[in-house]
Write a protein that binds this DNA or RNA. Structure first.
Lengths: 193, 193
DNA sequence: GCATATCGTTAAAGTAGTTTAATAAAATGG
DNA sequence: CCATTTTATTAAACTACTTTAACGATATGC
């Protein structure tokens, strides 16, 4: 259940002591999900904060005509969830689904706050985590406002690599903000057909 | 030079002691900019981290054919800058311009780290700041992938209110990821003409 | 306060991306 | 392993948005 990869990742941000990491594994709830299982469904309950040990999670919301808008794909060592719902303990419109067999550590709000309050290193860790996440969100916004659909897709393949192979194309299209039909055309064109 | 509004804002996130706030005002560099003055120009130097006391700053980068892509409009109590450039002390492609007479507090990397290291409250403050910023960036991404141009514009007017009146429309259009010509048509349609 | 550049508006033509619909391919479940 | 559902492909018609260009309105500097 303990994970070298997760620990290594923690320590790449902050110089954690063993007892601090122990506290995390103590407070976090380890859980496995099979491919296509739901980890969280939108609704009145607040969304947990999730660290992915292995596998892949998709965070999305459902819009008009049951259309699924994909907000994020999360992979190994990524945190995911609805931060707003988590922090404010409000209802969430997001849902989270396992796109592959997935292992996670789930944090509740109390546990999160307890970690931050007890260990300045965790406060620092999350500060840096959010800071880095902010940078990548900003980059995604830049792509959204200045890239063509083809450029967005090419960036996706660069950023997510092999993940593309296991994800249904309609969700990739949704993540990019284009239709699956158009993504299909882009891929055909890029394949030189 | 000290600002009640800024202090009030600091304290809305974290219960700061006076000496902590004093340390901030001590380390930060207060500066005034006239409308249309450049606060930072893209290039090899790393971008500072800026807290706006009053006025309005526009963060943007220049793309092909000198086209300006607006990343953010910042107003009173907002932080702005190129977080990536700031944290990694790398060159920035961003530039920052005053869209109105503007007062700011500018933080350097060393000063930022010194605040975080000395005062856990500042570490916490920035953690919450980045956390909230992340939530609004995520919302903006959702708008980008799921809203029409008209819906994006309406959200902008709701979010920024009076600011719209002082900003050249071509920059609003750029921020929304549409052409100024199309924004002009949207506004005419909304005005019922 | 005039000259000049910049910005905003309008309209026509063009295009990137959507919609619809029909068919093919692949995944899922009993 | 077959039946059913879901997903991907393709193509034609469509539309939201862009491009270009010309003109009018505003701002800016000398």
């Amino acid at each position: 259940m303990y994970s070298d990869s997760i620990i290594k990742n923690f320590r790449s941000y902050v110089d954690f002591q063993q007892k601090e990491l122990d506290a995390f594994f103590d407070l976090a709830h380890y859980q496995k999900f099979k491919k296509n299982e739901m980890l969280f469904e939108s609704g009145p309950g607040s969304c947990p904060f999730i660290l992915i040990k292995s596998g892949c999670l998709m965070t999305y919301f459902t819009g008009e005509k049951d259309f699924i808008h994909v907000i994020q794909f999360g992979i190994e060592n990524w945190w995911t969830g609805d931060l707003n719902s988590f922090m404010q303990e409000e209802a969430s419109i997001y849902s989270i689904k396992a796109m592959a067999n997935t292992e996670v550590y789930i944090l509740g709000k109390k546990e999160f706050e307890s970690l931050c309050a007890k260990f300045p290193n965790f406060e620092k860790y999350f500060r840096i985590l959010f800071q880095n996440s902010l940078v990548s969100h900003q980059k995604r916004i830049i792509r959204n406002i200045s890239f063509t659909a083809e450029e967005k897709y090419l960036t996706f393949t660069q950023n997510f690599g092999k993940l593309e192979l296991i994800l249904p194309q309609k969700y990739i299209a949704s993540y990019l903000g284009i239709t699956p039909e158009f993504l299909s055309m882009i891929r055909r064109k890029l394949a030189g057909r």
